[in-house]
Computed example of a mutant assay.
Amino acid sequence: MAGTFSQIYIQVVFAVRSRNSLIHSTWEEELYKYISGICKNKGQKLLAINGMPDHIHILIGLKPSSCLSDLVREIKKSSNDFINEKRFTTSKFQWQEGYGAFSHSHSALDNIISYINNQKEHHQKHTFKEEYISFLKKFEIAFKDEYLFEWIS
């Protein structure tokens, strides 16, 4: 019987609602482990996860039977509940609607993993808005400003 063979690597990027800087360094590692567990429980392979206080990057080896939007919805919903139940923030935590999803080749994985792991250093030079818009342009994704994340000026 023939099998299904695939190589699907997706970098997912999403932000905290209103781009508030709520992800604190004292608990971000716990959040990343929790999200890693969600991916594993959904049968996906998490290759890298990191972010900033206002957004997060996740690189996933996606199974062809998985629906990306369902996976991201579950990651956002469950991690949102986790953060609020743990009372990591004094106000109600919520992820912003929407996300970016960017596909990568196997040969690019080392560079993408390094990029995600070095988010703190990268954002000393570039804002999240600059980063996100550069992804959209690099991947030739048409967009309208009014449908992007809420930006902090």
Rank of each mutant, 00 (worst) to 15 (best):
G43V: 06
G98I: 04
N20F: 15
T89S: 04
Q7L: 14
L22F: 10
L59A: 06
L31F: 02
D145K: 11
L31N: 02
H24Q: 10
H122M: 10
K63L: 10
F102P: 03
L136I: 12
S153Y: 12
G61D: 14
E29S: 08
E130G: 12
N50S: 06
A15N: 01
E97I: 06
I23Y: 00
P64L: 05
L68W: 11
I10F: 05
R73S: 14
I10V: 14
Y34V: 02
I56A: 04
K45P: 00
E29H: 06
F128D: 09
I141E: 06
R17M: 04
Y9L: 11
S65W: 01
H122T: 13
D145N: 15
A101C: 06
R87Q: 15
Y34I: 03
G3Y: 13
Q96A: 12
A108F: 12
E131N: 11
K33P: 00
S91P: 00
N20K: 15
N41G: 03
A108E: 14
D110G: 06
D110Q: 10
S65T: 13
F135M: 15
L68V: 07
F88Q: 02
L22C: 04
K77R: 09
N41C: 01
L68G: 04
E146G: 06
I113F: 01
I58N: 02
T127V: 05
L46Y: 00
I58W: 00
Y132H: 11
I112S: 08
S78C: 03
N117Y: 11
A108S: 15
T4M: 05
G61R: 05
L46K: 09
D110K: 13
E121F: 09
Y32T: 00
K63S: 15
H122L: 13
Q11D: 07
N84K: 04
L109Q: 07
P64Y: 02
S78G: 00
K137E: 14
A48Q: 02
E30A: 11
F143A: 06
H24E: 11
E131G: 08
Y115K: 13
H57Q: 14
N84S: 04
L47V: 04
F149V: 05
S66W: 00
G37F: 00
I75L: 15
G98S: 08
V16F: 08
Q7A: 15
N41F: 00
F93M: 08
Q7W: 10
F139P: 07
K76A: 12
I8P: 02
I56C: 06
F82K: 03
F14L: 05
F5S: 05
I8R: 09
Q7T: 14
L71P: 11
F149N: 12
I133S: 06
R73A: 11
R87D: 10
G43W: 05
Y32Q: 04
Q7P: 05
F14S: 05
K77P: 00
I133M: 10
S36L: 03
W27P: 00
A2I: 10
K138S: 13
E150F: 10
L22Y: 11
D70A: 04
M52T: 15
W151A: 03
S6R: 13
S66C: 11
